[in-house]
Design a protein around this nucleic acid. Structure first.
Length: 269
DNA sequence: ATATGCACCTGTGTGC
DNA sequence: TGCACACAGGTGCATA
């Protein structure tokens, strides 16, 4: 469940240790399902210098010194972990990078994640498809993204990366609870005050989670193999049946668009 | 244009 | 103990 705060945590750690370094070699492990990598990826990355590791939405972007970039998406269970050079690969490891003596493993239990090389033109197209970055955009501008289509449920809008980038299932539920808006509410029935409140809460919850290095509800760990610290600050996600922090009403869980959705039936109208 | 539902995967937890 | 199955959820795609 890496969402913006988790991906940002990984980005910072990767950038800190990889920026300016040359990729010495890549070991392809090819365990499990074939993924769009292979020899071409190795040829396109080996010998290049990583100029920076950036993030847009939930996508990691490694800028290379030949003008190309690597895009990496963790999806649900992808992870980058720094290891010792003597590391022995385990079942779900896909690749090991040797970057000037630093060893980095890319592994992915469910194999939904990817790493691929893109040209600068391709990268531009990919990034243009995302909505605004919530931590770098004003409350007013974010609120304006949540207007149409009128019949769309507000949680569906929050999960759509073209509307606002980086929000996933956990932070959608959390922001809606903080703003007092039920996830099933249609955009057309949300007042401008509520939109502003929600936009503000999106920024707050994401910012607070980044400060705690993300949430580890299930699989997520950072590049040191450490869990994020935000789990205990969640107010509704994963708290079905527990009393709401505001009113003690038991938190309800429903399925909305095939996702578990948590809310307080009293606080969220 | 928008909504719906499935597919992609494996590990874990639950009920029988 | 074994077994079947629901569930976890980001995203792309086929279908309605």
């Amino acid at each position: 469940m890496p969402e913006l705060p988790e991906v940002e945590t990984v980005r910072r750690q990767l950038d800190e240790r990889l920026r300016g370094k040359r990729v010495s070699s890549i070991t392809l492990l090819k365990s499990g399902r074939e993924f769009p990598v292979g020899e071409k990826f190795v040829d396109g990355v080996q010998g290049r210098v990583i100029e920076a590791v950036e993030r847009r939405a939930k996508l990691l972007v490694w800028k290379l010194n030949d003008g190309n970039a690597i895009t990496a998406h963790l999806k649900m269970t992808g992870r980058f972990v720094f290891v010792y050079p003597s590391y022995v690969p385990t079942k779900h490891d896909r690749m090991i990078f040797d970057i000037e003596g630093v060893s980095l493993v890319w592994s992915d239990v469910r194999q939904f994640g990817f790493m691929k090389i893109v040209s600068s033109d391709e990268l531009e197209t990919i990034l243009a498809g995302y909505g605004p970055e919530p931590l770098e955009t004003s409350v007013a501008e974010l609120a304006d993204r949540l207007i149409a289509p009128k019949t769309r449920m507000i949680k569906a809008a929050l999960l759509n990366q073209e509307v606002i980038a980086g929000i996933g299932n956990i932070y959608a539920d959390e922001a809606l609870h903080r703003a007092g808006i039920r996830p099933t509410r249609r955009l057309g029935r949300v007042s401008s005050e509520e939109r502003l409140r929600l936009a503000k809460e999106i920024k707050s919850v994401l910012g607070e989670s980044v400060a705690q290095q993300g949430t580890s509800a299930n699989d997520y760990v950072d590049t040191r193999g450490k869990k994020g610290g935000f789990l205990s600050f969640l107010r509704v996600y994963g708290r079905e049946g527990e009393g709401c922090v505001n009113c003690r009403t038991p938190i309800k869980k429903i399925v909305l668009g095939q996702r578990g959705t948590h809310y307080c039936p009293t606080c969220q109208a």
